[in-house]
Design a protein around this nucleic acid. Structure first.
Lengths: 341, 341
DNA sequence: CGCTTGAATGATTGCGCAATCATCCGAGAA
DNA sequence: TTCTCGGATGATTGCGCAATCATTCAAGCG
């Protein structure tokens, strides 16, 4: 390295040593005054804080990570943030973690498991203290790698029998069944589906199919569309169903965004909703209550998921002994009936 | 510290030294094989990569940061990701940076400058190689701190006379004027505004006011709502305007989301759009083309902003000599006329 | 008065890596 | 043959911090 010891260095960032010199204490006392203020005397702490202000010192967290083996970083992997149902979860998770001094490393997988694998390796390089994953489908390589890290991790927005570690979500199978029961109860028999080809949407679709089959309804036309969800995709989905004469009495959509597209396509074709065609969404985005007609949908409490993830991680950070506690939280869902069905 | 030198440590993560031992080379050769593969021989590189695979080695980037003074981290500060017009920008920015080996540290300011200040300090602790800020309004403390870091930084989604460093955005004043000219050209004279109280929305509002005033239109009712933008806020905005009899012939909204709320409120009151009341949005969200009626709005190319930010930062990283190059990119905007006006 | 006690502070060390400088060795030139 | 040269590899060092152990000193006690 170029520089000898700790000269003043007008160029670089000030370090603990610079602050210590200004405050007239040892570097480790500065470290303590900032990191564990209760162990230094009031007078010393004041002197140190004054020196921090005077020097413009900002602790180098990379050095802190290295020395303490705690990065105060949480990695979040999610498919996308654009028009996303996950946005509320990420927002509340990030806020809660920030309040506890943790920062958020964002990784976008674009719904591709292989992408998740590469991203995961990159993120692990930061030695995050916690990892949040969307869904429970990961490549075998990812699962193995995650298992070996021993880092607390939370899978979100889903439930499964063998979670990697902690789990905060709800049952997509239960959603599918609940939607089937609801629609059958309303008297609908000819049902079609417009779904994104994302794993959780497809699981809801399959359990809907099964629940309907159990009631003797075997024919369910489906239009499976590539991610991400947009209104245009929804419109296209309904258009294809109509062209094939398969739309039936009600279209079940894998997201409110698709459902809004379906509504728009129906409006443009003068199809009355729900008179000629009912529409069901998923997610209860803030727009769902305000479409025309208001959208029946399934409400998921995204902020609550985020908050629960944060609590679970923070608890684990505070008490590493809890390792492998069997947290498996089902936040449930709520079927919201509005005018579209 | 507890451990002596570099014993095998079955518990912890493998290090460069472990890989080196397996590959039968020195640690620094492993470092080179991974970081600058062109300087080691093919045979050595293969042996090293095999050893990396065998050990499950993942480089500790905190240590790398500390040794090289390059974190390969870019901090992004933005108001919110929920229902956000910035989502596309963040998505494309993140993807482009990830492709170049940079990771993204996300900071959410909630539209509060003081929050930005605290967040900024926390993020600077990671010594990011680049910083992306939303907008050009920062506290004086933030500006000063940013200036002194010398880290390449980009202000996005706005233009201003004295940028901190680089700038990729468009003129909100020009948007306000363009909207005024457009509406006047269509023959509208009684104009009202529903805006979020975010700085950029208010700037568009004020320049709209000024442009209208120059044409002799002095009375413009406005409803200013707290962030974040939701359909419900838009509905409330129109409701208040109508209650006061001030909605006029056309409502200009500071975002498409608010505009959709206005459309919903109008629909629920049997107000014909645009016959009795025209509506103008901002952002051209993917939903704007599919509302009922389709929404006239102002299109901003969010992904392009993200891409341009990434290019600008990567260029600066590759060539630190370019410091203080005067990049100041105006990505412009496009007024989209649809059926709502 | 000497002792213990515990709060406050300090000295030393190493976290894992890359920058820097040093060394080695084989091919080609003189 | 000897020398030079440059590609390949290695040894050493320090990045900035916190863990660990050591020291100091005043208060309290018999």
């Amino acid at each position: 390295m170029s520089r000898k010891a700790s000269s003043p260095r007008p160029g670089g960032n000030p370090t603990l040593i610079d602050v210590a010199r200004v405050a007239g204490v040892s570097p480790i006392t500065v470290s303590r005054a900032l990191g564990r203020p209760e162990v230094v005397s009031d007078a010393t702490r004041r002197r140190v804080l004054e020196a921090v202000r005077a020097t413009g010192y900002v602790p180098n967290l990379a050095a802190g990570s290295l020395a303490s083996s705690r990065s105060r970083l949480v990695a979040i992997l999610l498919p996308t943030i654009a028009n996303s149902i996950f946005a509320d979860t990420v927002q509340s998770l990030t806020e809660r973690l920030a309040g506890a001094g943790y920062q958020t490393l964002l990784g976008l997988t674009g719904y591709l498991p292989e992408q998740e694998e590469a991203l995961l390796e990159a993120l692990l390089g930061r030695r995050p203290d916690g990892i949040v994953l969307t869904g429970t489908q990961h490549t075998e390589a990812s699962r193995e790698r995650l298992r070996r890290t021993g880092i607390p991790q939370v899978e979100a927005w889903d439930l499964c029998a063998r979670p990697l570690d902690m789990l905060v979500g709800f049952s997509h199978e239960a959603v599918g069944r609940a939607v089937a029961d609801y629609l059958l109860g309303k008297g609908y028999r000819r049902i079609s589906v417009v779904s994104l080809d994302d794993p959780r949407g497809l699981r809801r679709y399959h359990s809907l199919l099964q629940a309907l089959a159990e009631q003797g309804i075997g024919e369910v036309a489906a239009e499976i569309l590539p991610a991400p969800a947009t209104l245009a995709e929804g419109r296209e989905g309904l258009r294809h169903l109509l062209e094939r004469g398969q739309a039936g009495e009600v279209v079940v959509c894998s997201s409110d965004t698709l459902a809004q597209g379906v509504l728009a396509e129906a409006a443009s074709r003068q199809i009355a909703v729900p008179g000629q065609l009912a529409v069901m969404g998923f997610g209860d985005l803030s727009s769902a209550a305000h479409t025309h007609p208001p959208l029946s949908t399934v409400r998921i409490d995204g902020p609550r998921i985020g908050q629960s993830i944060a609590e679970a991680l923070l608890a684990r950070f505070a008490e590493p002994g809890l390792a492998r506690n069997p947290l498996r939280m089902d936040v449930g869902f709520e079927l919201i009936e509005r005018a579209s069905t």
